[in-house]
Design a protein around this nucleic acid. Structure first.
Lengths: 151, 151
DNA sequence: CAAAATTTGTTTACAAAGAAACAATCTCCC
DNA sequence: GGGAGATTGTTTCTTTGTAAACAAATTTTG
């Protein structure tokens, strides 16, 4: 004769389960969790991968511009870049034209590693939406792109 | 004769701009930013509001169950609840049936405050998706609910 | 029933990310 | 040209959240 203790799936969220902010947070937690489950040998964090990926496609990009595009604050970008430098994945160069700035490029080693990791990453990205149909997945990314104002 | 420095909107993201994880992060950043711009007098953080809202609808809920449902880890829940207790918004009671557990209820003061804040919150939640049509907004929440596995 | 394993919450130590203050450099404008 | 203000990156401090170790209570199981 158990007391009927409320279990998690009996909790009443009321209107909260239609709240974009709440759903978005749950979605991101799920994505991160899966990322770390599957990242395996690549030894990268999500933020590191995206930073390296963007440098690969925009060699010599400035720290500030990188941060603006990825919505990473300057203070945090400094730490990210230093961590990548410590792993010998990026090199920093102060350009002649503006001695405040720093231009970032990948080391040859990193180019290889990022290309390999990207094969995994975009496969993972597909698989993380596996409980959606292909159409739904595409709708979702399209809506998110519109929501955040990306093309 | 300016050197053409790459600006943020010229940065090539390549396939990253279809990556769910990336888009989701941007979306959440936007939502949080707007939240703090508009929260005004309510003096609540997103997490605090959701916790209080769920306690309002599930009085006497246990800390662990609350955390499971909102995906908040136990260690962090302890701090959240203590902060709310310090503000005299919740009270904790160890139930007779299980002296490890803690049951949480809102103080009368909090009931009023949460109800008021919720009127603001759900209005804000609508407005944050204002660059989507009503249909798109509803599609987005439906897809997110499916993605995270919420009925 | 008693030992072993699990659950619940807390504490402590730590990692990720932002805010504010700062130094160096650059731009603008007189 | 030279000072006022803006930009760039760094440093320091704080906030938010997690991980791991722990204590107390409960459940399981032999």
């Amino acid at each position: 004769m158990d007391m009927p203790i409320r279990t998690a799936d009996q909790v009443d969220l009321d209107r909260l389960n239609s709240a974009l902010g709440f759903l978005m947070r749950l979605a991101q937690l799920k994505i991160y969790e899966r990322f770390f489950e599957e990242v395996g040998e690549h030894n990268l964090k999500p933020g590191e991968f995206s930073v390296l990926w963007v440098i690969l496609h925009n060699p010599g990009i400035r720290q500030s511009v990188l941060g603006q595009r990825l919505m990473i604050k300057r203070a945090h970008m400094t730490k990210l870049i230093r961590a990548l430098e410590d792993q010998n994945l990026v090199s920093r160069k102060v350009p002649d034209g503006d001695r405040r700035a720093v231009e970032i490029t990948l080391t040859p080693e990193a180019v290889t590693r990022v290309k390999q990791a990207s094969q995994w990453f975009f496969t993972y990205e597909e698989s993380v939406g596996a409980n959606l149909t292909g159409d739904e997945r595409q709708q979702l990314t399209a809506l998110l792109r519109k929501f955040v104002g990306l093309g």
